[in-house]
Every structure is written in structure tokens, then in C-alpha cells.
Measured scan of single mutants.
Amino acid sequence: MSGNGNAAATAEENSPKMRVIRVGTRKSQLARIQTDSVVATLKASYPGLQFEIIAMSTTGDKILDTALSKIGEKSLFTKELEHALEKNEVDLVVHSLKDLPTVLPPGFTIGAICKRENPHDAVVFHPKFVGKTLETLPEKSVVGTSSLRRAAQLQRKFPHLEFRSIRGNLNTRLRKLDEQQEFSAIILATAGLQRMGWHNRVGQILHPEECMYAVGQGALGVEVRAKDQDILDLVGVLHDPETLLRCIAERAFLRHLEGGCSVPVAVHTAMKDGQLYLTGGVWSLDGSDSIQETMQATIHVPAQHEDGPEDDPQLVGITARNIPRGPQLAAQNLGISLANLLLSKGAKNILDVARQLNDAH
């Protein structure tokens, strides 16, 4: 009898209710805020589980004197976190989706994509230029951005401005803007500013005609071990179906173009009346040469937790077992079709030249 009692006690200790789920994140304040929001949602869904947040620095956090596009290494903000995932030191990792490459290392998958916040870019102005827009900034004003995508589009749109690289986390960039006289304004992701509670610093939100956004911008991705079915089931509740389908289309477009950090590629997606609209573009580094096109596809946005595919093969690095396969494939095909259209119009040449120029500098 006593033996059975011990077995029952052991089973209770090993039951999922007692389990601590370890969540990996970057150390920056924004990353911690984003991770806290994901953990809060998981806690609400699984009140019996405990969650421990483990923060670590990544290569991208450490190399702050070089433009991201020049470092010449993929997975700048993800490699150390993936290493911890691989060694079973954490069970899942919360990322900004735009930091996750469209091809993940073997053994990993994006197990959830959370509801997207505003994906557009924002302009934050130096205190002396508050009330201005990019259009009304004085001639030769210097605007800071760490992104080739932003610089290429904005140089084309605002030729009277000069664009220079600015690195560091959000706090560091804002301090550089406010305390030094080098920059009249800087460009940042609206979602990051909003998550930090800095709505009052948003001086201008850039519309798609001015600057399309990065693939996955404004959404959070939760990376897990691809074979860890328990954790895949656990994080599945975080999937937002519309965000998922938009981001599958965007990531398929980028992957098929073979774009990345070192080339200016941008997108804009919208879901309306059962249609998914995808606009994508590529630019030369100075913005003088560009190709942009829009395509659409009829896609039914499923309700969360309709029964999805059981075999769960990944699409552009994403596993969404609780979302039907048909809409996911339709979104992926839309991204591939748009990429093929741009490639047929000469996108590869623009991107190759951009890559060579970026590598040469």
C-alpha cells in the first residue's frame, strides 16, 4: 500500500501541473516587456503551470559599433537563445518575429505568432524639431536608422535628408537623439515604442507609400524545439490566425527572394473581405531603383483552434497545428507568387547589386 502511495506522490510531482516552463529572452527592456506579455497570456491559459524567465545577451546586443547589415552573420539576435533551447536550458524563446530568419536551424520551429501590433515605422524627432515631419525637416538634416530597408525607401522619398546608421537598443538610440546634436530624427518601429509606453515620442507614423515595413514587423514569434510536442501544444494558444497568415505570406515572399538583413526588402499586408493583399518591394541601397507589386488571394481566416493538420510540417519556419492547413498554404503560395513576379521584373539584379555594395563598404 505504502509503495503505491509513493508512486502516486511521484506521479503528482512529475505531472504537468508541477512543471516549471523556462522562457528565454534577450536582456533589453523591450525584450523583457514583450516576454512578460507572452508569459502573462500563458499564465492565464495555464494557471497550474509556473513560468521562469531567463534573460541573456546576444551577438546583436554586444556589437554596437557596426551596422547590422555589415556584421555579416545571420541570427544576430537569436543564436545564443537557440543555443540555450538546444541544450534544454529553456523550453521556449520569445523573439520579435522580424529577427527570426525565414529558414531556422534544424530542430527549431516557430510554435506561435502572437497578435500583431502596429507594424509601421515611426519617426521620433529631436526636441528642437518636435512638430515637424520628415518632409518639413531642414535641408541636409541627419536621420538615424539601423535599417537598409528604411534608408533606401526614405532616401527616395525625401532626397533633402541624409540617413546615417544608429545602433543600440531603444533606450540607447533615444538617448543619442536627445543628448547629442548629430541626429534631427530617428526611425523606429511603432510597436516597440508603444510597448515601452513611449507613445508621446511618436512624431509621425510612416504610411506604406512612404515606407513599407519589415517582414514580420510588429509581431512576436515564440520559438521552440520542433519535436517538443508538449510545448508546441502549450504555445499553440498564442497563435493569432490573421497575423499568422499575413506573416506566412510575408516570410514566403522574403524567403523566395532570398532577402535578408543586408538587402532592402519591404512588405505591406492587409486582410479585407476574405482577401489577403500582399505588397512587396525591393530597392537599391540608395533607393534610386525599385520594383513594387501587389497581389491578392482569397483566404478564409479560420477561428482559433479549428482542428489543424496533425502532421505539422513547417511552413517558412512556422508550425501551427491548430490552424487549418489550406489557408496557410494559400498564404505561402501568395508570397511565392509575388516573389516570382518581382524576380521576373529584375528584382534579383537589384538585390545582387545591393548585396555587393553593402559587402564592399
Score class of each variant (00 low, 15 high):
Val20Gln: 12
Ile21Glu: 00
Ile21Lys: 01
Arg22Phe: 10
Val23Phe: 13
Arg26Asp: 00
Ser28Thr: 13
Ser28Leu: 01
Arg32Leu: 08
Val39Ile: 06
Val39Gly: 07
Ala40Glu: 11
Thr41Lys: 09
Leu42Gln: 00
Lys43Ile: 12
Lys43Val: 15
Pro47Met: 02
Gly48Pro: 06
Gly48Ser: 12
Leu49Phe: 06
Gln50Thr: 08
Gln50Lys: 14
Glu52Lys: 07
Glu52Asn: 04
Ile54Val: 09
Ala55Met: 07
Ser57Cys: 10
Thr58Trp: 00
Thr58Phe: 03
Ile63Gln: 05
Ile63Ala: 13
Ile63Pro: 12
Thr66Gly: 11
Ala67Pro: 04
Leu68His: 06
Leu76Ile: 06
Glu80Asn: 06
Glu82Met: 02
His83Arg: 13
Leu85Ile: 07
Asp91Met: 03
Asp91Lys: 13
Asp99Val: 03
Thr102Pro: 10
Phe108Arg: 14
Thr109Ser: 09
Thr109Met: 08
Ile110Arg: 01
Ile110Val: 10
Gly111Met: 01
Gly111Ile: 01
Ala112Leu: 07
Lys115Ser: 14
Arg116Val: 03
Pro127Arg: 13
Phe129Asn: 01
Gly131Pro: 06
Thr133Ile: 09
Thr133Phe: 05
Thr136Arg: 11
Ser141Arg: 09
Ser141Met: 13
Val142Arg: 12
Thr145Lys: 02
Leu148Cys: 09
Arg149Leu: 03
Arg150Gly: 04
Leu154Arg: 05
Leu154Phe: 07
Leu154Gln: 09
Leu154Met: 09
Pro159Met: 08
Phe163Tyr: 11
Phe163Asp: 03
Ile166His: 09
Arg167Asn: 08
Arg167Glu: 02
Leu170Lys: 04
Thr172Ile: 07
Thr172Pro: 04
Arg173Gln: 02
Arg175Lys: 12
Lys176Ile: 11
Leu177Tyr: 00
Asp178Gly: 12
Asp178Val: 10
Glu179Thr: 11
Ile186Ser: 06
Leu188Val: 02
Leu188Gln: 07
Ala189Lys: 05
Leu193His: 03
Met196Pro: 00
His199Trp: 10
Val202His: 02
Val202Glu: 10
Ile205Glu: 14
Pro208Asp: 04
Pro208Asn: 02
Met212Asn: 02
Ala214Asp: 06
Gly216Ser: 12
Gln217Met: 01
Gly218Ile: 01
Glu223Leu: 10
Val224Asp: 02
Asp228Tyr: 03
Ile231His: 02
Ile231Glu: 01
Asp233Met: 07
Leu234Gly: 04
Val237Gly: 05
Leu238Glu: 03
Glu242Leu: 11
Glu242Gly: 02
Glu242Phe: 15
Leu245Ile: 12
Ile248Leu: 11
Glu250Lys: 02
Arg251Lys: 12
Arg251Phe: 02
Gly259Asn: 00
His268Gln: 15
Thr269Leu: 03
Ala270Trp: 06
Leu276Gly: 05
Leu276Lys: 01
Gly280Ala: 14
Trp283Val: 02
Ser284Ala: 15
Gly287Asn: 03
Glu293Cys: 07
Met295Asn: 01
Gln296Arg: 13
Thr298Lys: 10
Pro302Met: 14
Ala303Leu: 15
Gln304Asn: 15
Gln304Met: 06
Gln304Val: 02
Glu310Trp: 03
Asp311Pro: 09
Ile318Ala: 04
Ile323Val: 11
Arg325Trp: 13
Gly326Gln: 01
Gln328Leu: 08
Leu341Arg: 08
Gly346Val: 07
Gly346Arg: 11
Asp352Glu: 06
Val353Ala: 08
Arg355Met: 15
Arg355Lys: 05
Gln356Met: 00
